[in-house]
Every structure is written in C-alpha cells, then in structure tokens.
Design a protein around this nucleic acid. Structure first.
Lengths: 101, 101
DNA sequence: CTCCCGATGTTGTATTGCGATATTGGTTTT
DNA sequence: AAAACCAATATCGCAATACAACATCGGGAG
C-alpha cells in the first residue's frame, strides 16, 4: 500500500497509544500495524523509535527475554500529551471526514 | 505548535477533504487550517500542493480573480480514494484511541 | 559448529519539511 | 505617477525523514 505520506502520522499515534497502555517493542509493533493494514520496514521503524525516544515521546529500556535483548518502549508524559492532542485532531477529522456520505 | 510529524498527515487529509467538496486555493487553506489550530508556512504548503498534484491526488487550474492569479485545486479520483482509505484508518483510531477514557 | 531465527541496528540515497526570501500583479497613498 | 502596500504563489538552501537493502548479534536446533 502506498500513500504513506498521509498515514505515517496515524502509525505513530498508534505506536504512542500502545506504548501508553503497556511496554511495546519493535517487532511486536510491526505485527500490530500489519493487522491494521500498515507495513513498516525496519529502516523506518527503528530510526523512528529512536527519534521518538530522543525527542522525549517514548522512554526505552532494554530487557533480556529468552536470552535475546529486546528494547521496550513506554510513552512518556510528553508522549501522552501528544496523544491527547491527537484526540482533538481526530475528533475534528471524524466530524468532517466521517460524517455524511 | 510543534510535534508536526504526528499531525502533518491529518493536515493533508484535511486538504483532500476540502478539495473534494469544492475547489480550494493556497491561502484559503492556510486560513482554514489555522482555524483548526494548525499552521503551515508557504514553504511547506506550496511544495506539498505541487507534489500532491504531481502524484495525482489533486488537479489544479489557474483562475484570475480580481486580477490576481489563483490556483484552485480539486481532489481527483485517486485523491478521493485516499480519503476513503483514511476513513477506515480514522475509524480504527477512533475505536482505539478515542473510545474509553 | 553450522544454520536458522528473533530482534535490533546501520547505510546510502531520495524525498520532504520549512523558514526565509523572491516574484508577480494589482490597490492604495500622497 | 511613483512609492508603498497587499494578496497570492513560487523558489532556495539546508536540515530532517523515509525507506529498502543489508548488517549484526545471540541462542537454540540439528
């Protein structure tokens, strides 16, 4: 599926949402998104996670699971604040885009 | 307002939505978006419109209004299709992000 | 000890984003 | 009628992002 420029923001908000509920890690996110019809290559996903961490939206911590290192991310206060903002943006889009038809 | 990376997609869908209803032009879009709390500099807006035209989401036509040249854009079939997709994405986000709380 | 698998990481290139600046043509001011 | 101003679109230059392909790394299976 193309048209990524329109939907990448949605994807990131998905990530924030899940990271606000419980710790999440890379591959898990990939699968989650796939269930929603998005596909994200590692070359997009990991740099994005790193950036979101660096910018303070996510906080990451490495854990060893089955001997393998996984990096779990949680939404920070700032990340949750963006989520909150997004609720408003989504409501507006809902009102406009979803209504009638 | 920062955090643009999360919301630019929303902005573009806004543009598509309005361009699907009636012809729109640059400055008008700027004002429209401002009313929704988004701000978009010309250096972002115009290249974005050009690109969306080039990629076939929008169709532009220049008109002279009060002696000034304006470029009006309408959503193409492809643009409307993206809008349609976005309805689904929004529904999912609504289900996840907006529900509970 | 070799191969595969789950995960994360990196590289190189192309695309996008954006503030600042320019352009174009008409209107108002004096 | 020149100067200053305004609406609107366009471009420049640089920084930030996106992405596919490729690389790495440790454990477990055979």
């Amino acid at each position: 599926m193309f048209d990524r420029e329109f939907f990448l923001g949605f994807v990131k908000i998905h990530i924030l949402y899940h990271a606000a509920k419980e710790p999440v890690f890379g591959v898990e996110i990939t699968h989650e998104l796939a269930r929603h019809g998005y596909s994200l290559s590692p070359g997009t996903l990991y740099p994005t996670l790193h950036r979101m961490e660096k910018e303070g939206y996510l906080a990451g911590s490495s854990k060893v699971v089955n001997g393998r290192v996984r990096k779990y991310y949680r939404a920070t206060a700032k990340g949750k604040q963006v989520l909150e903002q997004s609720r408003n943006s989504i409501r507006e889009l809902v009102a406009e885009v979803l209504e009638e038809k």
